[in-house]
Design a protein around this nucleic acid. Structure first.
Lengths: 118, 118
DNA sequence: GGGGTAGTACTACGTCCCGTAGAGAGGTAA
DNA sequence: TTACCTCTCTACGGGACGTAGTACTACCCC
C-alpha cells in the first residue's frame, strides 16, 4: 500500500468523516482554510482514486468520491504493514503492547477476548 | 519520524541483524548482491545517522555505525504512529486485534497480561 | 618515501512522489 | 450567447532517495 501525502490525508479525513460521497466542489468547500484552486482538489481526488483509496461514481457531469475502506481499516493495515517489516513479529508485538497506554491496552484486551470467544 | 527508502531499509536490516557497530566498508561487503559503489553506502549511512536512525563513533579514521534503536522499537513506533492517525483509536485497535493472526493474538494477549500483573 | 588503499566530506544528477495549478473542451443555465 | 461548472490533460517546483564521482587526507608496504 502506498502512503499518503499531507493534502491527500486531509482530503481523506474529510471523506472519512462524511458518510455521503462528496463531489470535488464539496470537498473543496470544506478545506477553504487552505485556499486551493478547484483543480488542485480534483487532481488529488483523482490521484487518490487511482491509488485505490477512493471509489467514484457519476452524478451528472460530476464525480462523487467516497473512501474505498474505512479509516480504521486503513490504520489497521498500516499497523500490519509495519509489523511485516520486522523479522521477529513477536518481539515487536510485545513491545507494542507495552507501549500502548493503559486504557488502550484495555481495549486491545477486550477485543482479543471477544475474538477468543468466537 | 521519517520513513525509510528501500536501500536505507536494507542497510538498517544489516545493522539491526548485527550486534556490533559496523564500518561503511563492512556494510558494503554485506550487500554485495547490489554491487554498489562504496561512496553510495557511505552516503546512505550518513543520511541515516543524520535522520537519527544510526549513531556513529570513531574507529581510527573510520566511523562505526550502529542503530539508535532496536528494530522492534522502530516497528512499534511505526505502529503507534499509524494509530495516531485515526480519530477513533479504539476502533482502529479493535480492528487491528481482529486482523492479527491467531498465534499473534496469543502473543499480544500474553504481553498484555504481563503488563497487568506489574 | 612514494604509490596504492582506505576513508572522509562535499557535491551532483536522475527519478519519483506530491502539492499546486493552468489550459482546453464540453455541457448548462440564464 | 455568455458565463459558469466540471472534467481531463499537462506541467512545474521541491524534497526524498538511489546512486556515484571528486578531491583530500592518512596509513601501510616495499
Amino acid at each position: 500500500m502506498k502512503g499518503l501525502g499531507e493534502l491527500e490525508r486531509s482530503i481523506m479525513d474529510i471523506l472519512w468523516a462524511e458518510n455521503a460521497p462528496l463531489t470535488a466542489r464539496e470537498v473543496g468547500r470544506m478545506i477553504e482554510d487552505r485556499d486551493l484552486a478547484p483543480t488542485t482538489v480534483m487532481t488529488v481526488l483523482d490521484r487518490l482514486s487511482r491509488k485505490g483509496f477512493l471509489t467514484r461514481t457519476r452524478d451528472g457531469r460530476a464525480w462523487r468520491y467516497q473512501p474505498a475502506a474505512s479509516r480504521d481499516a486503513y490504520v489497521a493495515e498500516l499497523m500490519l504493514e509495519a509489523l511485516d517489516m520486522t523479522g521477529d513479529r513477536d518481539a515487536a508485538l510485545t513491545r507494542f503492547a507495552q507501549a500502548v497506554s493503559g486504557s488502550e491496552a484495555e481495549i486491545l484486551r477486550k477485543a482479543l477476548t471477544e475474538l477468543e470467544e468466537e
